[in-house]
Amino acid sequence: MTPLAAFLVVAALVFAIGLAIALTRRNAILVLIGIELMLNAANLNLIAFWRFSPHANRHNDGLTGMMFAIFSIAVAAAEAAVGLGLVIAYHRHTKTTDLDAMTRMKG
C-alpha cells in the first residue's frame, strides 16, 4: 500500500465513523461532533493529496491543497459555533437535545 493510499484509507475510516455518529446517535451535539470528524477526514484527504501530488501538477507554488485545508478549518470552526449555538437555543426552549424528539414540524 502506498503511503497515499494508507492516508486515504485512514481518512475514509474516520469519515465513516463520523458519519456513523451523525446517523445513529440521538444527541444533537454528538451529531455535530460527527460532522466535525467528517470535515477533519476531508481535510486529511486534502493534505495527503497535497503532499503526494506529482511535481507537474503543482500550481500556485504548490500551495493549493494546504490552502484549501486551512480555509476548511476556518469554515468548519465557524459552522461548529453556529450549530452549537442552535442546539443551545433549542435546548433552552424544549429542555432536550434529543434529535428523535425534535419533531416540532410534525403535523
Binding site: R25, N27, A80, L84, I88
Partner: peptide, 20 residues
C-alpha cells in the same frame, strides 16, 4: 463542544437511549 454539552446538561438525566 464541551461548553455546549455542559450548557445542555438539562434539568435532569436524559431518559432516552443513546442510540437512535
Amino acid at each position: 463542544v464541551v461548553f455546549a454539552i455542559l450548557l445542555t446538561r438539562g434539568a435532569g438525566i436524559p431518559e432516552y437511549r443513546d442510540f437512535s
